[in-house]
Computed example of a mutant assay.
Amino acid sequence: MQRPANKANESETPVPTTRLAPSPTGALHLGNARTFLVNWALARQNGWKVVLRIEDLDTPRVKPGVIEQTIRTLRWLGMDWDEQAPLQSTDLTPYREAMSKLARAGRVFPCSLSRTEIAEAAGAPHDGSGESRFDASLRPSDFPRSFDDEGTNWRLVVPAGDITFTDGFLGPQSVSPAKSVGDFVVWTQRSQPSYQLAVTIDDHRQGVTHVVRGSDLVDSAARQTL
């Protein structure tokens, strides 16, 4: 369980908030249902606000009728929520604005290299999760300082060093995204934000203070902390 920083209003104590965030790519499987139940139970036990957010940006895999099916399943399992966020796909403006800020700061760059080219590049070993590490040596020499969504991938410049945070279940964590995945995609050639960017922006916008996830997603927690 990660506690992300909430900077929406640093002068006030944020309302403890968590989210249930299923993706409508198929029937809710047992592992996700278990995580959602633990998340929901912790929220209700501790008085947290619960936001339901349907993460539908993986458009090639989104299946008709699954959103309604997922909501019915969550309710059948006894879960409820205090707020339902709009579908991510209905408004990409917040993600484009974030990309523009990152571009102005020199934190992102367009990349047309294929997965094969990245995997074959020297110093780009496979991390075992289906994603090849993007080494810093593959970055372009100059970064554009404006975001132009022309149907190409954009990657985040990942700094060297460890990202440290405290997980409520696992305790202190230290992860180096630079070593595990390198510069990862934050905007896709489908003209949509990647999961890592979208979830970070949405957690901030929706005031999420507590994230409950599987232990296999500790690396994602480190990426989203960047």
Rank of each mutant, 00 (worst) to 15 (best):
M1C: 07
M1W: 13
R3E: 14
A5E: 14
N6G: 01
N9Q: 12
E10C: 05
E12D: 10
E12L: 14
T18H: 08
L20Y: 09
T25L: 10
L28D: 01
H29T: 09
L37M: 15
G47N: 12
L52R: 08
E55W: 09
L57A: 06
D58E: 11
T59P: 00
R61V: 09
K63S: 06
P64K: 05
G65I: 07
T70L: 15
I71C: 05
R72M: 08
L77I: 07
W81K: 07
W81D: 10
A85H: 07
S89N: 09
T90H: 11
P94E: 09
Y95D: 02
S100H: 14
A103Y: 03
P110M: 10
P110C: 12
S114A: 09
E120Y: 00
G123Y: 03
A124F: 00
G128S: 01
S132I: 00
D135R: 01
S137G: 07
P140R: 05
S141H: 02
R145L: 04
F147H: 03
E150Y: 00
N153C: 10
R155D: 01
R155V: 01
L156K: 01
L156N: 01
V158N: 03
P159E: 05
D162F: 10
D162P: 00
T166W: 03
G168S: 08
F169P: 00
V175C: 07
P177G: 07
K179D: 15
K179P: 00
D183V: 10
D183S: 12
V185Q: 06
V186D: 02
T188C: 06
Q189C: 10
R190C: 00
S191I: 04
L197K: 10
V199F: 06
I201V: 15
H204P: 01
Q206A: 09
V208G: 06
V208K: 06
V212Q: 09
V218T: 13
A221Y: 02
T225I: 09
